[in-house]
Design a protein around this nucleic acid. Structure first.
Length: 492
RNA sequence: GGCCCCGUCGCCAAGUGGUAAGGCAGAGGUCUGCAAAACCUCCAUCACCCGUUCGAAUCGGGUCGGGGCCUCCA
């Protein structure tokens, strides 16, 4: 089955076919560096990280470009509010962004160009647009004349007349048409500025993406991505700029991720339900957040809540428990007394979700990067693994041992594409165990002491005392696990 | 007002014509001193109505309900 992706331009899933065979040119709009990134940014970047990784896994040579907007009104305004230099402010938040991305296990893109390092390319592009009659200078500003680009609004599918009726012109702007947008803004006192044919100024927001995309990926690219909110005006304007300048199709596929809601409400600063990645990671393991994001299809809205994060955490634990169980098994070619017992027909059927794990993974991902389905398929493999380990004497059967080790590798391989399951299972589970213990007034040592006391009570057949200890720990969220090898514990 | 999306088990969430994945929670069972964990089994006909079709959660029309974009925004 071929890879299909949903294209916002056509509003349907299309077979993926790159401009250049074997290569993928991917451009994703990055952040404007004026604040810490929030869970919406986290989602967008996790989603496109997975998309990039998946193409790589399929064997494509991926050129992934994600820009930094490091010169913009918002940055200047914020810097003025704080009384700091706008360049320093941008630097600070770009650095913070990279730290957050690293925490979320997002690969570094092939290129991360900055707007301020591409000003000459931007100026050149604007000159080209002016030369073609698609842009005009006005009072030191340069605007794009949207009525000159006949395909304007083809991505967002809006109506020009109605857009004009609702458009607003900011004070000081001298546009021919209210819908025209700025390519270049004349410098105001104290702002960062560059020399240009139209006098000192700085780039408008949209032009940088056209310029950097062209510089790093060429005139026609395969995929342009970003959040749904960027469809209009940002991406619409990019199309006008790029296709207006080159006369060639800009991007073959437009992919947009859905929003993040918080407790069923739109996340916004005014509602006070705005979470930065840093705040979330104080409380949750980054992999849990990543797992949560990928448990929903990228185009659907996702609801961020304590309950949903908790569910995600339990789900991830289930994966790591299964991986750990396999890791604790002996290698198939060591030891004595092992035999290769043939697998029965019924067992083969039960094992199928594991046997076809990678095939199913690919099938789900090929259908518009359906990570939710892919995880569902992997859960079925987990169930097959658990079943076999619980029911079969796998330690004595080289055939089962081989199969379990194989599926372990495949789960890590699929996990590698999703950016999940890459921690050593036991270490990760231990980290989960001890996180949050202090708040409950506990420590690993204290729990071990309780376990020892309970063991003695049990040996003395003082089950009342033994159960009391267990109940007490259970109230603090600690579950005791008895086994022939002794008692271990885990967090609820 | 314009454009667009959604409504699937208690919660989360896949599924866009062929008879409802998965996770969490729940019930019963195996195991256990009793539990827990693990495993097994069970647990929905898809907001509503009318159509198209041999066949629809999936297509068309309508009703009700929820949400987004149209201004900076992932």
């Amino acid at each position: 089955m071929a890879l299909r992706v949903y294209n916002t331009m056509s509003a349907r899933k299309e077979d993926f076919s790159p401009v250049e065979p074997g290569k993928v040119r991917l451009y994703v709009c990055g952040i404007t560096a004026y604040d810490y990134c929030h869970i919406g940014h986290a989602r967008a970047n996790i989603v496109f990280d997975v998309i990039s990784r998946y193409f790589g896994w399929l064997g494509y040579d991926v050129n992934y470009v994600r820009n930094f907007t490091d010169i913009d009104d918002k940055i200047i305004n914020r810097a003025n509010e704080l009384g700091v230099d706008s360049r320093e402010l941008a630097e600070k938040f770009m650095l913070a962004f990279e730290e957050d991305m690293q925490a979320l296990n997002c690969d570094t893109p092939t290129f991360q160009p900055k707007a301020t390092e591409n000003v000459s390319q931007i100026i050149e592009l604007i000159q080209g647009l002016i030369g073609k009659g698609l842009a005009y200078e006005s009072g030191g500003d340069v605007y794009y004349a949207v009525t000159e680009f006949s395909e304007y609004l083809k991505l967002s599918k809006r109506n020009m007349d109605e857009m004009i009726a609702g458009a607003r012109i900011a004070p000081g702007e001298q546009k021919k048409n209210p819908m025209d947008f700025a390519l270049w803004k004349a410098a105001k006192p104290g702002e960062p500025q560059w020399e240009s044919p139209w006098g000192p100024g700085r780039p408008g927001w949209h032009i940088e993406c056209s310029a950097m995309s062209m510089r790093y990926l060429g005139e026609s690219i395969d995929i342009h991505g970003g959040g749904k909110d960027l469809i209009f005006p940002h991406h619409e304007n990019e199309i006008a700029q790029s296709e207006g300048a080159t006369g060639k199709p800009f991007a073959r596929y437009w992919m947009h991720n859905g929003f993040v809601n918080v407790d069923q409400e739109k996340m916004s600063k005014s509602l006070g339900n705005f979470f930065t990645v840093r705040e979330i990671l104080e409380k949750y393991d980054p992999e849990v957040l990543r797992f949560f994001v990928l448990s929903v299809h990228y185009r659907s809205p996702i609801d961020f809540s304590e309950k949903n994060l908790e569910d995600a955490r339990h789900g991830l634990i289930r994966f790591y428990e299964a991986l750990k169980a396999i890791e604790e098994l002996p290698a198939p070619d060591l030891g004595t007394g092992k035999v290769a017992v043939p697998i029965s027909g019924d067992d083969e059927k039960a094992w199928e979700p594991a046997a076809k794990a990678l095939e199913n993974f690919r099938g789900a991902m090929n259908d518009d990067i359906n990570t939710a389905l892919a995880l569902g398929n992997l859960f079925e493999a987990v169930r097959a693994v658990n079943r076999v380990i619980a029911e079969k004497k796998v330690e004595e059967n080289t055939e089962w041992l081989k199969r379990l080790k194989t599926i372990h590798g495949q789960m890590l391989e699929a996990g590698g594409v999703l950016g999940l399951f890459q921690s050593p299972a036991e270490a990760w589970l231990n980290r989960m165990k001890i996180s949050g213990l202090e708040e409950a007034g506990l420590s690993a040592e204290k729990i071990e002491a309780f376990i020892e006391e309970r063991k003695n009570a049990r040996q003395a057949k003082d089950f009342a005392r033994a159960d009391a200890i267990r109940d007490e720990l259970a109230e603090k969220g600690i579950i005791l696990l008895d086994s022939p090898q002794g008692t271990t514990w885990k967090k609820k």
